[in-house]
Simulated assay, not measured.
Amino acid sequence: MMSSFPLVSFLITLMLAAAVCTQGYEPALDTAENPILTSAQYLIQPYSPRSNGGGLLPVPVKLLPLCPLGISQSSVTALPGLPVSFSYPYPLMDTYVNEGQAVNIEFRSEAWPGCEEFSKYWEVDESSSASEEPAILVGGKKRERNSWFRIERKENFVGGNAYKLTTLAGTIGTIPGPWENAPQLVLTNDTAKTFLVKFHKVHGDTTATTSTSRLEKLGLGMFPFY
């Protein structure tokens, strides 16, 4: 009978490698200056208090077909957006979301405007019809590289830190979207379009799906005119 020692040795090596991979990184911080956790949920919002919009919501990137959905900033400042959670594509012994490390971003809400056949993981559009500044879509896969994002500190501001989201291929920015020109998330190399964000923790630490607030339901009920 084959010994289980080689398997145990491999698992220990894998765990140690995962621990080493997280060393040297700083955890990204939320608006309360606490480390962002993989066990919690957050609203991704524009960092500037002068922003004329709210948080991020799933919205079609074109009239037809409506699916898969893209991601846009709400044009209504009072709408905080839908919560997201962060996770690592592969198991790591780290509960913090570290700056510069690849993570998956997933919407966590019971309210949804359709296209339920797609996952709620974010991804970069890599279809043959994608533009030079491809849209950030909903429908990604956890271990696909176009579903990997990084949080990078951009600058300090009063009361917290401004961050930008990046991928292996560029930076997440915004362009005027098809619905009332609401800012739509795209992959871009134009620094003038960089979307600076902050992370507001919601509902404490939980791995369960966040219950849908009245404002979230209102925003998705107004679809696509948020």
Rank of each mutant, 00 (worst) to 15 (best):
S72Q: 11
R108P: 05
E106T: 15
P46K: 07
V103T: 13
T31K: 11
L64M: 11
V61H: 08
I36R: 01
E126G: 04
L43R: 01
T171W: 02
E126F: 14
T22M: 15
E144I: 07
G177S: 08
S211N: 13
G100D: 09
T191S: 15
N189Q: 15
K164C: 11
A130S: 14
I172R: 01
E152Y: 02
F195V: 06
I105W: 00
T206N: 08
G24K: 04
H200N: 11
Y121W: 15
K120A: 01
P65S: 10
E116H: 09
V103K: 03
P6A: 13
T77W: 12
P65R: 10
W148E: 04
T174R: 00
L14N: 09
V158Q: 15
D30Y: 01
L168T: 10
G24V: 05
F118Y: 15
G159E: 01
W148T: 01
P35F: 02
G140A: 04
A28G: 02
G24I: 03
S131A: 14
A40Q: 06
G204M: 06
R143I: 12
T212Y: 00
V84M: 01
F107L: 02
K141M: 12
D94H: 12
Y42C: 07
E110Q: 11
V8E: 15
L63V: 10
M2F: 09
K154S: 13
G221M: 06
L64D: 05
M1T: 14
A182K: 03
E99H: 07
G204C: 04
A18N: 12
L92M: 14
L63E: 13
S4P: 05
F199M: 05
F107R: 00
P113T: 01
A135S: 10
Y90Q: 12
N146K: 06
S72M: 06
P91T: 08
L79G: 04
P134N: 11
S39D: 12
L196K: 14
R145E: 04
F10E: 13
Y25H: 15
S75A: 11
N161W: 03
W179Y: 15
L69W: 00
A78L: 13
E133G: 06
S51H: 13
A18W: 03
L7S: 14
V197L: 09
F157I: 10
I44Y: 00
L187W: 03
P89G: 07
F195M: 12
A162S: 14
P83F: 05
E155A: 12
E132P: 02
Y25N: 14
Y42M: 09
T194G: 06
F157L: 13
S72F: 00
T212A: 03
F157A: 09
H203A: 15
S39P: 03
Y226L: 09
F118D: 08
R143W: 09
T191A: 14
H200C: 07
P60V: 04
C115S: 05
L37P: 07
P83S: 12
P224Q: 00
T194D: 12
E116A: 12
K201T: 07
E99G: 05
S51Q: 08
P27N: 11
L11P: 05
E132W: 14
A169T: 07
P49C: 12
